[in-house]
Design a protein around this nucleic acid. Structure first.
Lengths: 192, 192
DNA sequence: GGGTTTATTGACTCGTCAATCAATAAACGG
DNA sequence: CCGTTTATTGATTGACGAGTCAATAAACCC
């Protein structure tokens, strides 16, 4: 049976299965067996390709961050004015792709993991740095203190996500975008 | 050896030990044995008084929320104007008591736990509701849409906490208060 | 002061789970 | 073709941890 060149296919399937499983369970306490079963293979094979559970989870996280980064870049490419850049970032952050209970759950758990796993922490910091840099750049022409504005908006985004975990029914992604953009308006207007 | 009337003392010691242990580990994956040892007793005794690990963790969380609620109430009692009420809530949220890496870590883990534990979820929702009600009341005389302002500020507070988990050195509690109060000013000013 | 209640623990059970291994088999390469 | 590499899994190991239990003993109560 062994067709060759399985490695990338298997790894990919495992990463996707891991994300689905984490989202569904709402926790990182998912077993390698569960993930492997969902990806259609034995747990032994999962270990064969990833070596350890931690490395598998890091790969899953990297995958999510990559998708997210691509979405932000795509939205930014369309923006012409500084205001549009901020809006693009906010909209990408709450795209229906990203703003779902299971994705929020996965994020939350990565934060927890980051407290004890150095690679995870590094990855999350990279994401933070990028988001922040994008926001600072966008705010540079809009407000007196772009660093502070960027800090405020990114904290606000994270906060809205956190609430999504606890009460998924409380806010749609359109409402989330409204809320954050309204706050952005307030941050910007007084300076103009 | 058995002095009587130990129950409240033991329960109290366990709750405090649990919080300390969770904060130190940065995770809810702490064993009952660890907690019990820190509290100076056997794990069997911990089970005797709490029945299960979950109940112990819920008690720990309730304790944190009680302290937090008391602090907010105390600060609110001193406030005379609506603006002072908002400020009181923000300051209490980031009091040096609360705004520490280990407390933030405990919070974060309670959010995770809430995804699978109904009692935990209930408790977190109660906290959210109270904070929100306090903010809405304070904002009523200050802005056109107090609900939205309350939502924005509480999300902002949660977001700043979340960042504290990942980069405890990035922000002092004074800076956190500054950041949030500056945003509050922006939310309020345009309406006046 | 004997029976009941409360405090306390060491030892044990029972699950679970990450990780390893040995075995099987197909594909590949010269 | 035959030796090596790649794919794959069932079975097993080893650790760890929640919860239970029986046993000990002090305190309390009539």
């Amino acid at each position: 049976m062994p067709r060759i060149g399985m490695e990338p296919i298997r790894r990919d399937a495992l990463v996707k299965a891991a994300i689905a499983e984490i989202g569904e369970a709402g926790s990182l306490d998912v077993t390698v067996s569960q993930i492997a079963r969902r990806a259609g293979m034995s747990s032994a094979l999962a270990h064969h390709y990833f070596g350890s559970k931690e490395q598998m989870l890091v790969a899953a996280m990297r995958h999510i961050l990559t998708l997210f980064g691509a979405e932000v870049r795509g939205a930014l490419a369309m923006a012409r004015t500084p205001g549009q850049r901020v809006e693009a970032i906010v909209r990408a952050s709450f795209s229906s792709q990203n703003f779902r209970a299971e994705t929020a759950a996965a994020w939350l758990n990565f934060y927890v993991e980051a407290q004890t796993s150095e690679p995870t922490r590094r990855l999350l910091r990279v994401y933070h740095r990028r988001l922040r840099a994008n926001l600072v750049f966008a705010f540079r022409k809009l407000v007196a203190d772009p660093e502070r504005a960027a800090e405020t908006v990114s904290a606000l985004i994270d906060g809205v996500y956190l609430r999504q975990v606890l009460r998924p029914e409380a806010m749609t992604n359109a409402e989330a975008i409204d809320l954050v953009l309204a706050a952005v308006d307030r941050l910007v207007e007084p300076a103009s």
